[in-house]
C-alpha cells in the first residue's frame, strides 16, 4: 500500500481539538481562501447568513461548543463542527432529524492552513426534503473516525477521499485505494500535486516505457 509516511501515525483525535481551538476565531472556513492559488484578496462580499431554525437549535443544545457555526450560503445550509463531534452529529441527524441519506463525502485541501483539510459530508433528508452540509477541519495525518457505522454508503466514499487526499479514516473496514492503482505514490488531489506530474516510476515499471512527460 502506498501510504505516505504520516507525521504522527495513529495518534489521534484526542489531540486535535486542543490544537484547534485558537483557530476557531475566523469562523468562515471557506473564507480562508489563503490556501488558493491566488494571493489572499480582500474577502469578497459573502452572502453567508446565519442559519436558524429547529435543527441548528437542537444541535447547539445537544453539542454545545462542538458546533462552530450554523450558516447558509446562497440558500444552502451548512454546519461546521469539530472533528470529534462529526460522527455523533451524523448519528443524531440520522436518527432524530431524518437525515438518512448520505449524499457524499469529500474533502478540500488548503495547504497553507494549520488544519489542512476541510472534510465535507453532504446529507439529505427524504422526509424534510432538505439538504445539509457538515464540515470539519482536520490536520494532515489526523485520522477522523469513519462514518461507515452510521451510513453504510460511506465505505467507498471514504475510500475515495483516502485515495485522493490521503486522509485515513480510523476504523474503516477496508482502507485501500479505490481509483488509483495500489502502487501509486502520493495523493492526486492534494494541491502540491501538479496536473502534469506523473508517476514516472510506475509507468516505467508497469508499462515498460519511458514516460512522455
Amino acid at each position: 500500500m502506498a501510504d505516505e509516511p504520516k507525521p504522527e501515525g495513529g495518534a489521534a483525535e484526542p489531540g486535535k481539538p486542543a490544537a484547534e481551538t485558537p483557530k476557531a476565531a475566523p469562523p468562515k472556513p471557506a473564507a480562508a481562501a489563503a490556501g488558493g492559488h491566488t494571493p489572499p484578496k480582500p474577502p469578497a462580499p459573502m452572502a453567508s447568513t446565519p442559519w436558524e431554525g429547529e435543527i441548528p437549535g437542537q444541535l447547539k443544545e445537544r453539542f454545545g461548543d462542538q458546533i462552530r457555526e450554523c450558516a447558509a450560503y446562497l440558500g444552502q445550509n451548512f454546519l461546521a463542527a469539530k472533528p470529534d463531534a462529526v460522527i455523533p452529529i451524523l448519528e443524531f441527524l440520522k436518527l432524530e432529524a431524518d437525515f438518512d441519506y448520505l449524499v457524499d463525502i469529500t474533502a478540500v485541501d488548503y495547504p497553507k492552513r494549520a488544519e489542512r483539510f476541510d472534510l465535507i459530508y453532504i446529507l439529505y433528508s427524504f422526509a424534510r426534503n432538505e439538504r445539509l452540509r457538515l464540515k470539519t477541519m482536520i490536520a494532515d495525518g489526523a485520522q477522523p473516525p469513519t462514518a461507515v457505522n452510521v451510513h453504510v454508503g460511506a465505505n467507498w466514499l471514504e475510500r475515495e477521499v483516502f485515495d485522493m487526499f490521503g486522509i485515513q479514516f480510523a476504523g474503516h473496514p477496508d482502507m485501500r485505494r479505490i481509483l488509483m492503482p495500489e502502487e501509486w505514490e502520493g495523493f492526486p488531489l492534494r494541491k502540491e500535486m501538479s496536473i502534469i506530474q506523473q508517476d514516472d516510476r510506475w509507468v516505467k515499471e508497469n508499462l515498460g516505457i519511458e514516460s512522455g512527460q
Binding site: 471557506a30 473564507a31 450560503y73 446562497l74
Partner: peptide
C-alpha cells in the same frame, strides 16, 4: 465567483 461553495445536484 465570490469565495464560497455550493452543492447543486
Amino acid at each position: 465567483p465570490a469565495t464560497g461553495e455550493v452543492y447543486v445536484s
